[in-house]
Simulated scan of single mutants.
Amino acid sequence: MPVREVVLIGDPRLRQVALAVDLAKHDWRPDAIDLADTLADLKGRLGFGRGLAGPQIGSPWRLIAFECRLGSFVAVNPHITWRSEEAFSVLDDCFSIPGRKVPVMRSRSVTLQCLDLDGQARVFERLEPDLAELVQHEVDHLDGILMVDRTVSEGGRGGVDR
């Protein structure tokens, strides 16, 4: 499948709430493959990249490609089912906002539930802070939220989705 261009800030597709995937249909599958291929290409060319959400390639579907300690896979209809009360400030960056890092508040740990491309349920419980931050960033993309929407002063409070 083709590698796609990353959609950049200012494009209204980044502000759309992504649509739930209906596993009985197959209209979302090409986007899932393109998403994984695009993330692999970015990581290969740039040397970094742990996740990429559907809207970042112009896809309307609730899909996230991961290449990190969680594995290399596409999460279908991912959602956070638990968030720790404890939060922390992290400098966030994003392929859709190149060259910019902003401080955001994130829950220190989260639990992620999703399906894989075969429709099998996957659960990642009480993730460590670096993975929790990644998951929250990518799920935000599916809800039309960008890191700049969660910007806080260094060490400040605010911006955590509760």
Rank of each mutant, 00 (worst) to 15 (best):
L35Y: 00
R162I: 00
R108V: 07
M147L: 10
V76F: 03
G156Q: 09
D31H: 09
I33C: 07
D41M: 04
V104I: 15
Q120D: 13
D37E: 15
R83F: 10
P129H: 14
E138P: 08
A36N: 08
G119M: 14
L35S: 02
T81S: 15
L134R: 11
A18F: 06
R100N: 01
I57R: 05
M147Y: 08
D143Q: 11
H79Q: 01
R150H: 10
V104P: 11
L142S: 10
E5R: 00
M105I: 12
R126H: 11
G51T: 03
L63S: 14
L70M: 15
D116Q: 08
V135N: 13
L46A: 15
D22R: 14
E86A: 05
R108S: 14
D93Q: 05
H141G: 02
T81P: 14
A20W: 03
I97N: 13
S109T: 07
L14G: 04
A36T: 06
V160H: 08
V90I: 13
D34W: 00
M147F: 07
S72V: 11
I9N: 13
V76G: 04
V74D: 00
I97S: 12
I97C: 09
R100S: 03
D31C: 02
V3W: 00
V3L: 02
D149F: 07
T151Q: 15
L42W: 00
V6W: 14
G54H: 04
Q56I: 01
V160D: 05
V90C: 08
H137V: 14
A40P: 04
Q120E: 14
N77D: 08
A24P: 04
G47V: 07
T38V: 10
H141P: 03
V74T: 01
S153I: 01
D161Y: 04
L39V: 11
G47F: 03
L35T: 00
L46V: 13
I57S: 01
I80A: 03
P2I: 06
V3R: 02
S72T: 14
V102D: 01
G47N: 06
V135H: 12
W28I: 02
H79L: 00
D37K: 14
D130Q: 06
C68I: 00
V135R: 14
L19Q: 14
L35K: 02
A36K: 14
E67H: 10
V135L: 13
L115R: 10
P103V: 01
G54I: 02
L131C: 10
